[in-house]
Every structure is written in C-alpha cells, then in structure tokens.
C-alpha cells in the first residue's frame, strides 16, 4: 500500500547535514508543536530491526541462498522519523525467496 500523499521534510544526518526526505503524509491526531528536525538515523535503526526480525527465522531454515525484498517508506512522527514497511514490488509487502542446493 503506497500512501496517496507525500511531503518533503527536512531531516538531519549525524554530521549536521540537512537532507530533504520524501515522507508519507500520514496525518491523524498529534500535538501541534513544530520545527523539530528528525534524524535520519532513526530510519536506519528501523531497517536494522526489520532485517533482524526477518533474518532470524530464515537462518533457522538453513537455506543455501535467501532473498528478501521489501520496500520502506519513511513516515514522520512527532520529533522522529519512522520506517513504514510497504510493498517492495509485486503484490507482497515482504517477498521471500529461499533456495537449497542439493548436497553433493
């Protein structure tokens, strides 16, 4: 599911550089203080978390090769950025391909 509205907001990197990030305009209730510039690092942390959550069970299946496809949209919450797991292409949000090579 791709959000219909997006907006470009400022986010900062650890070295203070400001980048524009296109985020999903999620709307909804929130307190209306403004001006907080979120750190893009929060998105990285979220991706790390998603990878870990997906990779651990895959390891258990011990495939020779595994491919995981997913898409990330960035959404903004008061004061911070967050990753929104969305369709990575095709119809699935998470597309997992596992291959086992015959043992010789």
């Amino acid at each position: 599911m791709s959000p219909e509205r997006t907006e470009a907001i400022s986010a900062k990197l650890d070295d203070g550089t400001i980048v524009k990030v296109q985020v999903a305009a999620t709307g909804g209730r929130q307190d209306v203080a403004g001006g907080a510039i979120p750190n893009l690092k929060d998105v990285g942390k979220a991706i790390e978390g998603i990878v870990e959550a997906v990779a651990t069970p895959i390891h258990k299946a011990m495939p020779s090769k595994a491919t995981v496809k997913f898409g990330i949209d960035v959404a903004v919450e008061p004061g911070q950025l967050t990753a929104m797991l969305v369709k990575g292409g095709g119809n699935a949000t998470l597309e997992v391909t596992l291959e086992w090579e015959p043992k010789v």
Binding site: R29, Q30, V32
Partner: peptide, 26 residues
Amino acid sequence: PGMSGAALLNGRTGKVCAMAKLTRDQ
C-alpha cells in the same frame, strides 16, 4: 504543527476561551 499554544478567541463572547493543543489532521 507550530500552532500549539495559540489563543482561541470565542466570537460569541469576544474573549479567549481555550488554547490550541492538537490537530486531527495537519
């Protein structure tokens, strides 16, 4: 966002009856 803390003027009484705090969709 940024409007938090604005005074809400009541058109009926001509006085400030509340202070802005939240949005339902910005």
